[in-house]
Nucleic acid binder design. Structure first.
Lengths: 224, 224, 224, 224
DNA sequence: CATGAATGAGTGTTCATTCAT
DNA sequence: GATGAATGAACACTCATTCAT
């Protein structure tokens, strides 16, 4: 949890946050709820547990949130809204601006290493988002609007810029190019968690470099 | 459910199936259970519902399956064991053998169109597998041993063969090449279900061709 | 039940009682539970019945007692702890002190008449204790530590004192002397409940006098 | 169970037994049922278990015995009818006849040692009888008529004979004399199972001798 | 506004008994 | 007569939600 503390402070109390006006009590409840959701999943978490962890009475919870589901939405949705965009991933934007003039290989390497660290940090959160989105349309919608569509837009713009600069091929739809890049990297992250044995830092970097090289130059033998 | 009927018949009653010896009543229970699991997820499904849907008394369920969890495993694990391998994906093997001499572009296209149809068919099943694997180690293990590792082996061998033939670059680890291919295609499938608006058959084929082209020849502008 | 009311008040609410702090609702639940336990036995009693008899919802029971078994222990163990010792049998101690200088015959008579009244009063309780001790080791242990061993110690000391005073033979192990006394009297009580027809107050006293006389002077014909 | 085999053969198949006409299948069911009753108690035993242990189908049980309770009665009641009387304890009668001319001390010793062995052998049976008699009036009645009253009659007659011979005091009701003897010895047996640490064979004999001596000559100091 | 005791519908599971074969 | 699959009422226990204080 402690690892998330900073993240949450940012999301929940930052300027423009949907919870700017959150009372300390509400904040405690959400913090406690999230902590347990991440550990045991939503449905295995009881309101009683949340109340204890938040240091309030069980009834108090329902004074602030009409149902248990509301707590889920109130914890997850704001976090999703900041998963990409002005929040943490703002650093992504900044990374890109800072390194605008580096060759593609190096920019990709920087981005991917940054994203890898980020994803590994918020893995439990992603798991809950993924699971509960299947049962709560509100979450699915927020996931779409708060994460997926912005990410899509972000990557499309990035790809298009590089196409315009002549660094990426222009005979191909930008969405196809973007999707391949994301797919290749996303699956790399997934395979890391599936096969945790491989994973020395140095190996990681080489693996990412390999991915980038294939993405940029193709898998085909140069003989052909 | 009806869409799964044929699939289940195949998995559960085919020769050598773990459920060859399934009684009709057991089959009804599993069919009913699966139907509801796919709709509402495992934990939101009550044994009472399953009993009603299967047309048996609640007690009957527990005569055939010791616990509700056993029903989950008995529905999901056999299906997983056939997700890849001698079952449905046997067609994958056959596809490869049949088209061994075609150029890579065409083999990839055939495989991907086949897999796309298959995955879209079993999407609700994949959802349940994905969600419940988080809570039931038996499922996670079956997923790993029955699907993930065999798939990995299968694709590695395929890639290595093509490397040996000189069709794919040999200066790169086969696992990196395989992972990129799978990632690129997996994410294509995911994005199809996320953005269902795009998806005319003809468009699909073009999109897949684009993916393959990027994978083989790279995303880099040829000017460079 | 009414006959136990006074007894329970004593045990559960007396000073130093393990239930001094019992809320009224808890007390109602325990009272209701005990009433039914005494009538039908533990396992034939349902939590639903207890709830109704206590005038609370079934869920309320489990807010106060984690399991049905806990209710059993919470009713029985405190009662056992007072079966002998500072509680009801405190009167035993006092009886002995008060009548220290009376001849053995008279002391025995006083004790036995007192115990007889006590045992007859708590007969249904003894039945439950006896039966359930076979299934619940906690009860067996409490019975041993709370009733049997203290009783043994108590009687041994009494016998030894009388041996020292020269009132009881010293050529015999005190435990043998004590055991005979208790056995003789316990079986008298048991036979009273087995053959309830005999049992006029006057007859009782004569019977007890007979027992005492045999114990003290022997069953052998004086001719020998 | 093997230790009971002989006993059961005697009870159930002996001449005049209520089960003389028992079919082999019924006998198997009863044998299996008793075995499990003795191990786990009546209510913890399922008809399914009995069926398996007896090697018959569950339905078959109910063809021979209307309810599970009937099985209990059919196992326990015949055994009770032979607990005393012409059955095993017939040996008691014989013991008395054989040793008619021995002094009381020696007769008592022989009887008590015999009974002690017998009781220890059938302890699990006694436990079931004791527990279930509380819930099944039929058992209570059979216990009374089959064990308690015959035993009472038996001991009364024995005592009366010895009174007539002048070996036991005649100034005392025979029932009081008998009850004391039985109580003293019964409690000795109970205390043996409560405090199992004491119990070397030699010690046992000495303890029994002590009991007999007190019973015959009294606990009072001879000084008085 | 905060509390936490009370609720009661709902849960998965058991098992003596029935009955079509 | 024997079977064993089917039954369904009953069970102890859970937990999100309510509401009097």
């Amino acid at each position: 949890m402690d690892e998330f503390e900073e993240l949450f402070n940012y999301h929940w109390q930052g300027e423009g946050s949907p919870y700017e006006q959150l009372s300390e009590k509400q904040w405690n409840i959400l913090k406690a709820a999230l902590k347990i959701f991440l550990e045991k999943g939503y449905s295995a978490t009881t309101t009683n547990e949340i109340a204890h962890a938040a240091g309030v009475a069980e009834g108090t919870i329902f004074r602030h949130f009409k149902t248990k589901k509301d707590i889920l939405l109130a914890t997850i949705i704001p976090l999703m809204q900041n998963l990409v965009g002005p929040g943490v991933s703002g650093s992504l934007q900044e990374l890109l601006v800072e390194n605008e003039d580096l060759p593609l290989e190096e920019v990709f390497l920087i981005i991917m290493e940054d994203r890898q660290k980020h994803v590994q940090r918020i893995l439990p959160l992603l798991r809950v988002i993924w699971v509960e989105s299947n049962y709560h349309p509100e979450l699915k919608e927020a996931l779409m609007n708060g994460v997926i569509l912005p990410s899509k837009k972000f990557f499309l713009r990035f790809i298009e810029q590089r196409q315009e600069r002549g660094e990426l091929r222009q005979d191909m739809d930008s969405w196809v190019l973007a999707r391949s890049l994301v797919g290749v990297f996303a699956f790399y992250l997934i395979s890391l968690s599936l096969f945790p044995d491989t994973g020395e830092r140095q190996q990681n970097r080489e693996a990412i470099k390999g991915i980038i090289q294939i993405y940029l130059d193709g898998a085909r033998s140069s003989r052909e």
